[in-house]
């Protein structure tokens, strides 16, 4: 079977690197969808988790987020978002996919951050309060840095999930980043297999790059002591998938 060599040929064909359906354009599209989704998810999930975690309230939210968030099929949520946007008369090209991805990204960010904040050593927190730290500083200068590794792990899981699930967005409408190659190649039968393989390799490569960036960020941003703290409590894990 020449699928492998066909895939390599597809990836190295200059024609596939130009135009609106070219690899750079699709990469940009994929990144736009992923970055906008992550930005919105972070803006929602992080403050909520920080505040609720600091107050040690909202255990119910955490459980609900973990259980329901994990159980929602990404395929279903993408199509459901498509349905809603059809009803509202908004283009299916970008926002329904983002809406679905935001919903999928919130649970891992929220749960990891919340768990990390609530498991910060209470003696540390008490000590901080004892020396007269205001609550805001207890949260931002103590709880947040100490829980950073687990929070970062949650963000990484969410990002990887968002980037791989963005692929499914290509079944909704046009656009869809690298998913376009996979959905189109699939519909085009055997001649499309090179495109499918090429798209899958590109996506796997993108995920690998993102994981490396996170690994680098962890090493650069977090002091060794804090990193070790993180590993011990790193319990929440990857969910869902495209």
């Amino acid at each position: 079977m020449g699928i492998l060599s066909d895939g390599i040929e597809w990836l190295t064909d200059p024609a596939n690197w130009e135009g609106t359906n070219g690899i750079p354009a699709r990469l940009l599209e994929h990144l736009q969808i992923s970055i906008v989704s992550m930005a919105i998810a972070l803006a929602i999930a992080l403050p909520m988790a920080l505040v609720l975690g600091h107050l040690h309230k909202g255990e119910f939210f955490v459980n609900a987020a973990v259980n329901i968030g994990r159980a929602i099929p990404s395929f279903g949520i993408v199509i459901f978002a498509g349905l809603l946007f059809l009803e509202w008369g908004i283009s299916l090209k970008f926002w329904p996919v983002v809406a679905a991805l935001v919903l999928l990204a919130i649970p891992p960010i929220f749960t990891n951050t919340y768990t990390a904040i609530t498991t910060v050593d209470p003696e540390l927190v008490e000590a901080a309060r004892g020396v007269g730290m205001p609550e805001r500083r207890v949260l931002l200068s103590l709880e947040l840095p100490v829980s950073a590794p687990v929070t970062l792990a949650g963000i990484k899981i969410a990002t990887v999930q968002v980037v791989s699930t963005a692929t499914i967005g290509a079944i909704l409408s046009s656009g869809g980043g690298f998913g376009r190659y996979i959905v189109d190649g699939f519909g085009q039968g055997p001649p499309g297999h090179a495109k499918v393989l090429g798209g899958a390799v590109l996506l796997a490569g993108l995920v690998l790059v993102i994981e490396s960036i996170f690994a680098l960020a962890e090493r650069r941003l977090l002091p060794e002591g804090i990193r070790r703290l993180g590993r011990a409590t790193d319990v929440v894990d990857a969910i869902g998938h495209g």
Partner: peptide, 17 residues
């Protein structure tokens, strides 16, 4: 991990033959 990051639809398509 590599297998996990390959989109399912791509694997389905490549397996059909």
């Amino acid at each position: 991990g590599v297998l996990y990051s390959v989109p399912s639809l791509a694997l389905f398509a490549l397996l059909v033959p």
